[in-house]
Write a protein that binds this DNA or RNA. Structure first.
Lengths: 202, 202
DNA sequence: CAGGAAATTGCCTAAAAGGCATCTTTGCTC
DNA sequence: GAGCAAAGATGCCTTTTAGGCAATTTCCTG
């Protein structure tokens, strides 16, 4: 078998800890959550929490790490003969569609997930951990792009980082836009601009 | 007056702490430096260190924060009628030329500065703080671009984040390239690709 | 089902984070 | 140039985090 009970349980614990961390932080505020509480919520000891994550911030960011890594996965899943940017668009779109299937059910914009995103964007103490998460995702993405295009050097990394940046900007704009705008629309617009070389719009 | 002795001294202390933090971390390794040591090195109390920075990592990243903020400054300093991307190229080039004038003298590639950069790129515990630094710089840059181009919405932020990403990729490539390559050349190449919309190279 | 690797846990020490009160220094006013 | 108010520096204190070490329990393999 690929991974026995052992590996699966470890993954479950990791996810349980991360969700517990996000939930508690959203409820009480980041600063009012002790890792002891998170561990208790997930049913493990404080010391075990520490075996999984180096810090409280990492635990909260873990969920976003997993989600972000999917972009590279999605990209690899696209047909190999599809043009790069077409595949990229599809991969990011799928990434953004994620959030419904968070922990089982599929109630639309998943309030829990959204609150978590807002938390991560607003709490300064979390930005570092989140940034590291995105850096990790960028590495994977760059590798996927290198494989797909057969390029090396700066190109794969440039594309990966630009995609990561785009994703961040789109997310921020989506959260901010007061007459709400659809993510798909924002994303499409942003990628159009990227592909056009970012000329100053008139 | 704009800033009295008070303000200037505060700035000096901040810089002294940051340099001390970098120097000690480079010498002994990040984990073997206590903030107490940094404070002592800079001639202030431990408690005062904490008034300046929230963490050891922040102190180390502070120098990079200041340096990164200069990109936006340089951009604002360019002639207003210069095309955006021309101005951007010039601003980043100047940013990269920085490092000689670190703390007074101007011995070429400033070993101290380079070692600091390597440290920041390699030590995981620092990546969060550094990422936050770049995020700050991105905000300033986006504002500068918005002012210069008279645009709003996602465009200024997209450009700012793409520039930040480019700078990061170029720096990484420059540090890694074994037959060393000039920063100017790498930067120029990267920006050419960005302006062309990142088509897959042949 | 026995041996061994891996994970969980408790215990312990060092270090970090940050509130609060006090003392100094700086900048401004008369 | 003396005095006053505000801002900064410092010391002290408590809570929380970080992580090493060893004992114990849980899963995998042969």
């Amino acid at each position: 078998m690929a991974d026995g009970l052992r590996e699966r349980k470890k993954q479950e614990t990791r996810i349980a800890l991360s969700w517990a961390a996000v939930r508690l932080a959203v409820e009480r505020g980041y600063g009012n959550v002790r890792i002891e509480d998170i561990a208790a919520e997930a049913g493990v000891s404080l010391r075990t929490f520490r075996n999984y994550f180096d810090s409280k911030a990492d635990a909260i960011a873990a969920r976003e790490v997993d989600r972000s890594l999917r972009i590279a996965e999605e990209l690899r899943a696209r047909p190999a003969d599809e043009p790069l940017w077409v595949a990229v668009r599809a991969a990011i779109e799928k990434h953004f569609a994620l959030g419904e299937e968070g922990h089982g059910g599929q109630r639309p914009p998943d309030e829990q997930w959204l609150a978590g995103i807002r938390l991560m964007m607003s709490e300064p103490a979390l930005q570092g951990a989140v940034a590291r998460a995105y850096a990790r995702a960028g590495d994977e993405l760059a590798a996927a792009i290198a494989d797909r295009t057969g390029t090396s050097g700066m190109y794969p990394r440039l594309v990966a980082e630009v995609i990561a940046a785009t994703r961040g900007v789109v997310t921020a704009e989506w959260l901010r836009a007061d007459p709400p705008r659809s993510i798909a629309e924002l994303l499409s617009s942003a990628l159009d601009q990227i592909e056009a070389g970012l000329p100053v719009p008139e």
